[in-house]
Design a protein around this nucleic acid. Structure first.
Lengths: 215, 215
DNA sequence: CTGGTAACTTACCCATTAGTCATATCGTTG
DNA sequence: CAACGATATGACTAATGGGTAAGTTACCAG
């Protein structure tokens, strides 16, 4: 028997660091992604992950370091595959549909990761994580803008502001579908894709508003 | 001359309570709306409004009370007009365009108010403001769902989940356009409306993806 | 069985910030 | 002009939450 036992729960539980880190990052990503960085406390994350707060600081150094780890994992999951999807040979609305399908498949395990890149509550100090985050968010935005711009040029529009606005709309559409999915967990990637096809169909087959009919 | 002067700036400045309240609410709405509730401190708001923190507590009781006041003003500005716009006789995409136009005109003075209703950093305790907020957010959602549902029934779709998803998408589209506007302050409500018309045109005139062409 | 190290936790520190108190000035009114 | 209520603030308290110090337990190599 040990001489003293003032910290009854202390001591290792035999979980390797890599495993714990993954587990913590997973929990953190979910809470950061749903509640926002600013509204989340490190204590909340520790509780959710079933460990204590100092372990997080041991492994990640700071709240921001934890966020950085979440981001890097998110990048690993998304970046390559996302560019592959976006660089297919489809254009216009078909490219949009393919991108949505790919996104749903990618995000299936944890849709929250997407939110990290566009969390408005992350402190916007020039230095630190904000810059890094902006870099990756911009990569996704650039990808989207490329697709949107291509479609608009086909339609004879090339006003950069129009492209910028429609890109924002498009990304928001994708985001809202992921969010909706979050609230309907029984949906599969396949059923989401099918649903999107139906929704496109409804919108595109709707009667044109006046002033927009001809041309 | 007064006997003592230990608080040099104390004392009334002759601003009636109603005016001060309006001024504070205006400042608070802007900061809450852009940075999020959780990431905003009462001190920041006081500084922005040019008054001291205790005055806010004097008038609104708590940070949550201040948010409630912001919400009520937002309701006053939006609710009636919004319902009038939505209850016009337009349907489908024309109703959508009309709603956007009305929204831009309404939000012109302070686009931030819109964000209050969908701020994810507001504490989600069952009791308190969250319930009230959900009530109003649901009213807007119901309005949108009515319009979307009408359009979808015209297109022969009546799956409630499809309606729910497209409603989420539609609200997100409106939100993203307001956000985009926030980042392009030189735009007027009229130019935003015109831009939306062009964007609709591009999307609707795009070549249909395969598998979606015929019926 | 004896170190050393990696995996843990309790109990704390301290900066920020929600919220309060006591006080000060002004306008009005009898 | 005295008294009062409304408008206002500097200086405090208390709690939250990021971050740390120091110690506890388990495993493993010699």
């Amino acid at each position: 028997m040990p001489a003293t036992s003032q910290r009854p729960n202390a001591g290792t539980k035999g979980v390797p660091r890599a495993d714990r880190e993954a587990q913590i990052v997973e929990a953190a990503t979910e809470i950061f992604g749903t509640r926002g960085f600013a509204a989340t406390s490190v204590g909340d994350i520790a509780e959710r992950a079933g460990i204590s707060k100092p372990l997080i600081y041991n492994y990640f150094g700071s709240k921001e370091g934890l966020l950085r780890a979440c981001l890097h994992r998110a990048i690993d999951i998304l970046a390559g595959e996302f560019e592959r999807i976006a660089s297919g040979d489809a254009v216009g609305l078909e490219r949009a549909l393919r991108t949505l399908e790919g996104t749903f498949a990618l995000l299936e395990p944890q849709p929250w990761i997407w939110r990290l890149f566009f969390d408005p509550t992350i402190p916007r100090g020039e230095e630190g994580i904000a810059a890094e985050l902006a870099h990756y968010a911009d990569r996704f935005t650039a990808l989207a803008e490329e697709g949107v711009g291509e479609m608009m040029r086909l339609a004879g529009v090339d006003d950069p502001l129009d492209i910028s606005a429609l890109t924002a709309v498009w990304m928001s559409v994708a985001d809202s579908l992921v969010t909706w999915w979050l609230e309907h967990p029984e949906e599969t990637p396949a059923s989401m894709s099918a649903r999107c096809l139906r929704l496109f169909q409804v919108v595109l087959s709707a009667p044109l508003p006046p002033g927009l009919a001809a041309e």
